[in-house]
């Protein structure tokens, strides 16, 4: 049976993890490779590296990091953050990333999804979608959640799937950082609408939140950053408890 995936997300700046703190057994908490290896040992199913570097030689820095990650990590990983062209995507993929995640660039020019998908296969293309509920409607936001696009979440997700995306990484801005649980209803609606996997993100604060995600929505995976970084939830414990609750988990 296909398992539900648990995906830790690492924020990267200038080749270092941003939220890295003192992990037991990790020599250097800022080293993304040390942290990534730790997550792999604890049973992470995939990893996402989100590069938030804003410098000119960003591509060079991230590609050299991706090469090092690829040499060490034995599970699939996605790289995102500022990928805005086929050339950016190609550089990251040829450095060894299994998938790229694109966001604002896809909103500006949805054909980019198609271009990466045609060149490297749809399994390489994750489209990240940041959504916010205003009154009763969910809307898409771009530029790291700063810019309202006026596009409805369901319309955009359908379009992404039609353009050849392999997966949707859905982040609810209303839930992000609250630790009060995932946005279950909209996650479910989108997972029912499209026939590609949906990775839910934003709001994970407890084991029960993941349990609800996997029992009440069609999400294929749950992503979280700080709860794993700060060891509020241990990956192994999380996976064991989900297994006990009869959720298919590796």
């Amino acid at each position: 049976m296909l398992k539900k995936r648990i995906i830790p997300c690492l924020d990267i700046q200038d080749g270092r993890t941003v939220k890295g703190i003192n992990f037991e057994g990790i020599r250097d908490a800022g080293d993304p490779i040390e942290l990534a290896k730790r997550y792999v040992d604890e049973g992470a199913d995939e990893l996402v590296f989100l590069d938030i570097t804003a410098t000119n030689d960003k591509r060079k820095t991230i590609c050299s990091l991706v090469e090092k990650i690829a040499a060490e990590i034995t599970i699939p990983f996605t790289v995102g953050g500022g990928i805005s062209s086929l050339e950016d995507a190609q550089a990251v993929i040829l450095s060894g990333a299994d998938k790229v995640s694109i966001n604002s660039a896809a909103i500006r020019r949805p054909e980019l999804i198609q271009e990466i998908s045609n060149r490297f296969g749809k399994q390489c293309v994750v489209v990240a979608v940041d959504i916010k509920q205003i009154d009763d409607e969910w809307f898409v936001f771009s530029n790291g959640g700063k810019r309202a696009t006026g596009i409805k979440a369901l319309d955009w997700c359908q379009k992404i799937a039609d353009f050849g995306a392999g997966e949707i990484l859905l982040t609810s801005m209303n839930n992000d950082g609250t630790k009060a649980g995932f946005a279950l209803e909209i996650t479910h609606q989108i997972s029912q609408l499209v026939s590609i996997p949906v990775i839910a993100s934003g709001g994970a604060g407890s084991i029960q939140d993941f349990e609800q995600l996997f029992t009440q929505t069609g999400a294929s995976a749950g992503l979280a950053a700080s709860i794993f970084h700060y060891r509020e939830i241990n990956l192994q414990t999380l996976k064991n408890e989900l297994k006990t609750s009869q959720i298919p988990i590796r």
Binding site: K3, D45, G166, S195, P197
Partner: peptide, 13 residues
């Protein structure tokens, strides 16, 4: 046939 998500993505036994 796309009866479930395609591609078949993830860990399976």
């Amino acid at each position: 046939e796309p009866k479930l998500n395609v591609p078949h993505t993830g860990w399976n036994s």
